[in-house]
């Protein structure tokens, strides 16, 4: 590991510390969120309202020195509201593109399952292609570009569940959950989250983040680990409980995320711990139970523990 990347790693650890000061008692989830960003993946936060999803997304953007925007998804949100519109400007006698809120580096798509499938797919297309095409005009999205989508897991009237193919675009699914009693008490005693947020300072720039991502590509992945990852993937495909197994895209994501996880621990190679840390978050939302149509991270974890480490 070069001194340069060691410094970068230090900065990221400082960023992680700051995050943990804001979101108390969720260090594992914060680590997964950072891994997701470093592996260039989008995140899906599934939780009930009021547990700090927005705060987390905002804090993540701030400490990584990224621009942040939040869009509340509702059933009347149109694709244009998200992507932007071309407006005729008389002064210039031409159409001018007014970029929507999506033109940011970190987009918090709040309650994504409340928007219509049309709006959802507009977002997901932008995520996949890193660009937005409106009226034949293509506008590249800024780099890096991350989406942190939240959704309320409980099925409710008036929501549109994301189809399986769209779920696959999210690298990891995270749950914040209620803070434990100690953390909640600290929260109640302390100053408001907003104040802490405003006190945050960026720890690294967007360029440095990209350098870190390049560094991560150098992490070694030994043969036995590839065997392990393949064994896990094929286990999901063979298990009759699921309507379908993990895609190759998911497997690639797992490899990237494992490398990011190893890098964050200042290791030069991936070890099975990395795989086991990431797999439930990666597979949980992708494995849909045949019987109930639900997805369940616990089953993904259970499945993981039924596969031997080669």
């Amino acid at each position: 590991m070069t001194p340069q990347s060691r410094e970068m790693l230090q900065r990221l650890h400082q960023a992680e510390q700051q995050l943990n000061q804001i979101i108390l008692g969720k260090a594992a989830t914060m680590r997964l969120a950072l891994i997701g960003i470093l592996a260039r993946g989008h995140l899906l936060l599934e939780d009930v309202p009021g547990v700090g999803k927005t705060t987390m997304a905002h804090a993540l953007a701030t400490v990584l020195g990224l621009r942040f925007a939040r869009v509340q998804f509702t059933s009347d949100l149109l694709p244009a509201d998200l992507l932007g519109v071309s407006v005729y400007e008389r002064s210039m006698e031409a159409f001018r593109f007014h970029p929507g809120p999506i033109f940011t580096q970190v987009l918090l798509a709040d309650e994504i399952n409340r928007a219509t499938p049309k709006t959802q797919s507009a977002l997901l297309e932008a995520m996949a292609e890193q660009q937005v095409t409106i009226d034949g005009e293509t506008n590249a999205l800024p780099t890096p570009f991350f989406v942190i989508a939240t959704q309320n897991p409980q099925a409710q009237i008036g929501t549109f569940a994301l189809p399986e193919s769209q779920l696959d675009r999210f690298l990891l699914r995270l749950e914040l959950g209620y803070p434990d009693a100690k953390a909640e008490r600290a929260l109640l005693q302390g100053i408001s989250r907003q104040d802490v947020l405003s006190g945050l300072s960026p720890m690294l720039s967007a360029e440095q983040l990209q350098e870190a991502q390049q560094d991560i590509a150098q992490i070694k992945l030994a043969e036995p680990l590839l065997d392990y990852i393949q064994a896990l993937i094929s286990a999901t495909r063979e298990d009759q409980r699921f309507s379908c197994g993990l895609s190759t895209r998911a497997a690639l994501g797992l490899v990237q995320a494992c490398k990011a996880s190893a890098w964050l621990e200042a290791r030069s190679m991936v070890i099975p711990e990395d795989v086991q840390r990431i797999f439930p978050a990666l597979a949980g939302h992708r494995l849909i139970l045949r019987q109930s149509g639900r997805s369940d991270p616990h089953i993904a974890e259970q499945l993981m523990y039924s596969v031997a480490i080669p």
Partner: peptide
Amino acid sequence: KAASETAQA
């Protein structure tokens, strides 16, 4: 060591 247990665990 269980088959699915990592070395570190």
